[in-house]
Design a protein around this nucleic acid. Structure first.
Lengths: 197, 197, 197, 197
DNA sequence: TATGAATGAGTCTTCATTCAT
DNA sequence: AATGAATGAAGACTCATTCAT
């Protein structure tokens, strides 16, 4: 019965839904669930969004737009590649351990409901952005003599899919701290020359 | 002695459902879908299974029971670790590329619907069996001087989650041959000593 | 909870719906109404029909298939045209006065919801069948010297649309006996030669 | 003095709604549709009308009030009955062919939603006004020796219901020019004495 | 075992309507 | 007067599940 400004309500819906998606995945969340969580009426919710897909899309959009390419910035600042790598991997490690707030399952479900064939899907775009950043970083590390002469793309794929794999399984299986830590350490070993450690 | 007719029907149900799960994931598949695919009536299906969970469980069971520990066997036969590894990785590579028949998405959804807290879930058991086999293999390789002295568990995790990560994403994104190949090559580099290649 | 044979239930649905359509027109009748009238559950109804359109279509089909061309039969029997005409017009008169059981409003609404452009709609087919029968009759009457030399199609249109007009308005306005009677008498005067009356 | 702004909006609403009613009939048009067509907000529309019934009623009212009894005027001017008749029938003919702008379906639906029992409904009033005018005309024609000695009411009913019947069906079926023309010609034949043609 | 009719709960979706601004 | 957010009720539709045959 409140009469908020529209954008406020949209934010509320996104926030509440995001929590629900993280808890239950994508398909388990119904418009009804979101009504209950937001305390909005059926019709009230439909004023702003007409499906969970639409809400999820908006949430993803927000994520994407808030992601800046910090790697490139740091490279521009001439920060040592090892330091940049360590920072990223520490973030990854944290994320692999923070299962409850992870949308990875929901993302997977969301995209599995759509026609994957189109190369234009957001997931693929994300992947490509990520690929670009990592390529820059690895090449930068190699140029600076901090990293081994590795197959850049192959190493990227190993990193990114191991990371995604852990995130996914953390929703389904008890993942203790040692797994993310071990994975991160292995990645460092692959990339960083011994004298830099 | 099993009732032949009944067992046949169960096989039919499992086969049809398996295809459906691979196509659509777990939650998208309804008892109704399965009725249609198997050409069984509602009641007919319920004679054998009373939920998709039950069917999926049975399918997983079949998979598990058909998986023998070929690694241990090969080790017992004193086959070179590098050969064993190459075989396994080739299988993995094939699987990473065979997206359509992959149940990975369905598995994920299936387990995400249950109470993950229980360490006794089948996924975890699978994980542990896999861990045991790989540990044996890696140690065997190290003992024989074929593999580097690596952190056994950490390398296992890197391998297994990268593999699972690729399988998962192959359902959602175009995964070309080079990704599985690159990932497999990286794993080989981590494990196998140069003089063995 | 009864477990009738399917066709029985379909008959029940058609009968109940038909009454509802006659009472309320087409769009006023909801699947829910039909559930209540038939004492079927939501799902039970949907087993047989998935929309009111489908039910109405079936009802119309039944009507069409039960309509035989009695006019042609009578002509074949060499019955006097005046007698045939009198019979038909008496039926029309009765129908114009039996507003409660008339589906005319429902028919109108039903067809107005569809794409009228297609000449293949059932209403048009009905019209054409009717046209054919009347043409035969009028020509037969003229040949036998019982009817005036009229413009066959024009007279048909006058008859049929006046009849339909009355039926329609009988749903909306009090139509006393004199209107149908008067209309029928006028038609007779147009067609029948004085010496035949 | 009416609030100019307000009256303008009401006119806009009536005009837009009228188009919608002609397109879709009465029940298919929702307050939401009208909001969209008029570009008014929900609340804005409700400032003026609180239901589609109210709007439709107003539209009908306007129609009724704009209808003057031109027949009586012409009779007063001693214009030949045949001329008057020809004018009216030409108007009817035009209207029977102008299906898109016809409200007949909407009118039917509108009145079918109300309690038909009341003899006081607007439709009936319309009918009575029309009856009165036509009676005058036909009697006038008879008196002047231009028209046959017909049963005035019966002929009126034949005319008016055939006209309404065609208008109605023109919404549902392809009605070519020959139908209205034929109907009009028949009516002339019934009324007009041969020597007047 | 197997059929398929029937139930009923859950969810989606659309609107008429109200109300703070 | 006008806006548009919010409510809530009505109706549609889909399934898991049961049951008489």
């Amino acid at each position: 019965m409140l009469n908020r400004r529209g954008e406020e309500t949209r934010q509320l819906i996104k926030k509440s839904s995001c929590a629900l998606f993280a808890e239950k995945g994508f398909k388990q969340v119904t418009m009804k669930d979101i009504c209950e969580r937001t305390k909005l009426s059926r019709g009230g919710l439909y004023c702003h969004y007409s499906s969970t897909q639409e809400i999820f899309h908006d949430i993803l959009d927000d994520f994407m737009n808030h992601q800046e390419d910090t790697i490139s910035e740091k490279i521009a600042q001439n920060i040592p590649a090892v330091n940049i790598l360590n920072d990223i991997l520490e973030t990854y490690r944290q994320e692999m351990m923070d299962s409850p707030s992870s949308l990875s399952l929901a993302i997977l479900e969301y995209f599995s409901l759509r026609n994957l064939s189109d190369t234009e899907n957001e997931l693929f775009q994300q992947y490509q952005m990520s690929l670009k950043s990592w390529k820059n970083l690895i090449r930068y590390g190699i140029e600076r003599g901090e990293f081994h002469h590795v197959d850049v793309e192959a190493v990227f794929h190993l990193i990114i899919f191991a990371y995604q794999g852990v995130r996914m399984y953390s929703k389904l299986m008890p993942i203790k701290e040692d797994i993310p830590t071990g994975v991160v350490e292995q990645i460092k070993k692959i990339l960083i020359k011994k004298n830099q450690l």
